[in-house]
């Protein structure tokens, strides 16, 4: 699908799995580089989705980053050790609850 031409310099954790990444690149780019295309399931039908535009417009790359839900992965910069997972459907409140 995609191949990196610059070597990774850190790791992130996606769905509990360690993936190589480069600090500063977007989380979406890091996931694509690792061969991940499914970022979320839609709240409408549960269909699998991945990024379309990578420029903040399409909202199809929504993931959960640390505790925050519905984050646009294309606008989240990678920091070493960043933990993220798929967004399943609508924003929930279990983890977020005040």
């Amino acid at each position: 699908m995609f191949r990196r031409t610059d070597p990774p310099d850190c790791t992130i954790v996606w769905e509990g799995r360690e993936l190589p990444a480069r600090a500063g690149e977007s989380l979406a780019v890091a996931l694509l580089a690792a061969g991940i295309t499914t970022f979320r399931e839609t709240p409408v039908t549960g269909a699998a989705r991945g990024p379309l535009c990578l420029m903040g417009a399409c909202f199809d790359c929504l993931v959960q980053v640390e505790e925050a839900q519905n984050m646009q992965a294309c606008l989240v910069p990678v920091t070493p050790g960043l933990r993220a997972q798929m967004q399943h459907g609508a924003r929930g409140f279990v983890e977020d609850a005040a």
Binding site: T5, D6, P51, L54
Partner: peptide, 16 residues
């Protein structure tokens, strides 16, 4: 994805 998206991946992450 869109071609523009792939170009962003190329420019920002060196993904080919």
């Amino acid at each position: 994805m869109s071609v523009g998206a792939a170009q962003i991946a190329l420019k920002t992450g060196g993904l080919v």
